[in-house]
Design a protein around this nucleic acid. Sequence first.
DNA 1: AACTAAGTCAACCGCAAATTA
DNA 2: GTAATTTGCGGTTGACTTAGT
Length: 503
Amino acid sequence: MDGGEETTTTTAMEARGLKKGPWTATEDAILTEYVRKHGEGNWNAVQKNSGLLRCGKSCRLRWANHLRPNLKKGSFTPDEEKIIIELHAKLGNKWARMASQLPGRTDNEIKNYWNTRMKRRQRAGLPLYPHDTQHQHDHQGIDDNDDDEFEFDLSSFQFQNQDLLHHNQQNMIQYTNSSNTSSSISSSSFSSSSSQPSKKMRPNDPLVSTNPGLNPIPDSPMNFQMFSLYNNSLDQNDSSHFGFSLPLSSSSSSNEFCNPNHILEYISENSDTSNYHKKDIDALSYSSLLLMGDHEVRPSSFPLGLENTVLELPSNQTTIDSFTSNPILDNGVHLEPPAGNSGLLDALLEESQALSRGGLFKDVRVSSSDLCKVQEERMKTDFENRLKDHLNSSDQPSLGANPNIHKYNEPTMVKATVDDDDDLLMSLLNNFPSTTTPLPDWYRMTEIQNEASYLAPPSGSILMGTYQGNSREEEPATVSPSSSVDPVASLGTCYWSNMPRIC
DNA sequence: AACTAAGTCAACCGCAAATTA
DNA sequence: GTAATTTGCGGTTGACTTAGT
């Protein structure tokens, strides 16, 4: 089917006054402002509503590849390159799928990288894939709908820093188990990885601690995964936005379902990750979604008070629905992925899975340091952009006035307007960050800029950066229960954290 | 300094899937 | 159920930059 205006010929476009070629800063600003006010989607309306002389397709591309928050610019890291090679061996030219595994990267970047690399190697007479890359290049056999597609073997990748893994585990424990500090997971319980020494130290890597006892690791993929998914669900006026179906029956004991402590237990009990199966990881991801992601988890099936609020991860005995490949909890509850075939959601899941793999499971050894780093950089970028936006914007949009407003940039303050969920949210949020880890330097910009009073959260409120686990010791994380969403209060958030190039 | 090849990046095009009316 | 529209993807192109001669 034709894309209508999207495939209008150049002549026709020009005849209609639509511009082509490189974007100007002014056009970028118009588009950014438009998305800020109206959210993403309906790209053809951009021209009509903003006067931007670009076709919708061009707008979408510009936004996705250049303007959206949390894009990671710059060269690919060696680890990213490895991942690309491995993914290409597995997926072929599925650039978008590959991008979903590389946070902050776009399909276009990956495609360009690959084409350049391929050209170079061909010219040099080198094989397309290094010998140590396990070849899985029978793309004809790949079923796009097969979840197992992402069961690719990343065994050639190593955790770059064992300390990091250790800290990620610790950090996760602190976060997920803030009310129960007695639980712990020994790093040695992660069998293979713990036995291997650090292969490479990165002095500048903020995730690499020089003092392993102080839990300085600002993030763990798991933490971030959960929270970012949560954020992504926070289209404050659209509870169906996330589309995640949770078939919890009223008869099921809701106390069994959603307790971060159970995540801990689950991981602890499965600490010999050699037996992990991709489906288990999926289950974990789903559970994270259930825990953090959905407004549809109503108090009726989801008790208030996190200490009582449970969303249990599938246990060892978690089974997989052989037909849908969805996890089934012990009590028979089926965890279902979102209805429909949202590429966005798929990508969210894929990325979240990639993150969880990177941080928690030895079977998939994507460098967790890079994943964390990427996340941090993206959040930092997002934060800075929002700060700039806010400082530069004298006319803050009225939040909530337009149901489509701020689909992308105000996840954190969490739909405080949804009264029914307030208590639940507070419970979740209050259980969130560890208060023992320092904020990263970039986050302290808020203080440098604190002459802007809005940056200072009200006393007793929760500063809801998505940077869970990074609250400084002396400044416990707080969140504003205010019903009005302060756009700046969400500066630390990373709505795009799980956007595969959502774009 | 001028030229050229290679590399990089951004954007466009066409198609198809997904969504909406 | 169908047509129209929107969205997403992958291939390709062209402008610009960089390195080498």
